[in-house]
Amino acid sequence: MSVIRKYCCIHAGKCFLDGALLFQSEQEKAKEFLAELYREIKPGYPKFFKMDVLAKAGFLAAELLMKGTEPVDDRKTGLFFANACSCLDTDRHYQDTIGEAYFPSPSVFVYTLPNIVLGEICIRHRIFGENTFFVAPEFPVSQLRRYTEQVFADSGLERALVGWLECEGNTCEVMALLVEKQGEGIEFTDENINRLKR
């Protein structure tokens, strides 16, 4: 049975790690709140400020989940995430940079795919395992859980970051899990994932 080793929820000015409130701010706007959270946990990674909001949210969740974990073979960690809005905010921002004068921004353009967040996490943590980003109308708990289990069974993956990364406008909803193929932790079931959601 696979297990949830750690889990993290970020939304509406609050960040929880393993169910405990880790950081809270009056600032509820996603972009500003994530910057405050970055300063709180001090990853020392200035490229963070160049990322779009979706990548910032995923980066910080991964940072919290991977901190203090034992290293495993880089090829045996995977990433499986989903959201509803894809990277729509960044698409709109990119459209705005084009404008009438036509000066499209290259640094905004590079984030106009939802799976770029996975690339940022892979670069940061030197992860070379399989990664997939799904777009679904709501958190596809069962689908993500079954997909992760299947990849664990088929590919030799031993660990995965799994979850929901939804950022739209000023809001951000993150639930991210560090799941391991075996070991000690909370059983990786649909019921437990739904129970841990805040």
Partner: peptide
């Protein structure tokens, strides 16, 4: 390299 592209855009804009 992406920063370099932004600097090129900055010079033009």
């Amino acid at each position: 390299s992406i920063d370099a592209l932004e600097l090129i855009v900055l010079m033009e804009k």
